[in-house]
Simulated assay, not measured.
Amino acid sequence: MSSDRPAARVVCLDREGKVLLLRWHDRVSGETFWEPPGGGLLAGETPLEAARRELTEETGLPGDAVQDRFVAVPRDFMWLGVHYVKTEQFYLACFDEVEPVAAPGSVTREELDSYKGAAWFDVLPEGVQPPELAEVIRELT
């Protein structure tokens, strides 16, 4: 099965330049990885609107922190047995605090079953998705 469902993600940076990543576990493949907050667009939603909504839903952080500036990132990955091939828009959100608290707000049951936490990083961890995230961050900043 494959999907090209449009999606948007948010690169969150704190005052010290640390990036917020969410830890996910794919129960189908058994893989665990880190990824910026984000997800699929709802019907009639723009990528920017989706990025702001997803940030608030997945982290509790304010969606209005997401800037209207993005980098288009080609993606090719598996998630829960579905093959996704698409281009996602990665937006930037900057926070004046050091490591603002990030905790899921209104997430789906599927997300709760897969969500394994959030952390702020000054060096990207192994298993980060997309693998070229460091370059995306450079382009956004």
Rank of each mutant, 00 (worst) to 15 (best):
G17T: 06
P62Y: 04
T32I: 09
P130R: 04
E45A: 01
R69T: 13
L92Y: 12
Y91G: 12
L140P: 05
I137S: 08
P100C: 10
D113C: 13
L124E: 02
T46N: 07
L133N: 03
G40T: 11
E111T: 11
E88W: 03
Q129E: 14
S3G: 12
H83Q: 13
G117Q: 07
V73N: 07
E110Q: 15
V136T: 11
F77S: 04
V28A: 15
D14Y: 09
R75V: 01
A50G: 14
R9I: 00
E58C: 02
L21I: 03
A8P: 14
T46Q: 04
S2W: 14
L92W: 08
D76E: 11
H25I: 09
D113R: 15
E111F: 15
D26W: 04
W79M: 10
V136Q: 06
R53F: 11
M78R: 13
T108K: 14
A72G: 11
P100S: 09
A51Y: 05
Y91A: 10
D4V: 10
G117H: 02
E16R: 13
Q89S: 14
A72Q: 13
V98H: 10
E99V: 02
A50H: 06
W120F: 03
R109F: 09
Y115R: 05
E57N: 14
E54L: 08
G40I: 01
G38F: 00
V123S: 12
L22D: 08
D4P: 00
A93C: 11
T56C: 03
P131I: 06
L124R: 05
D76Y: 01
P100I: 07
V101I: 09
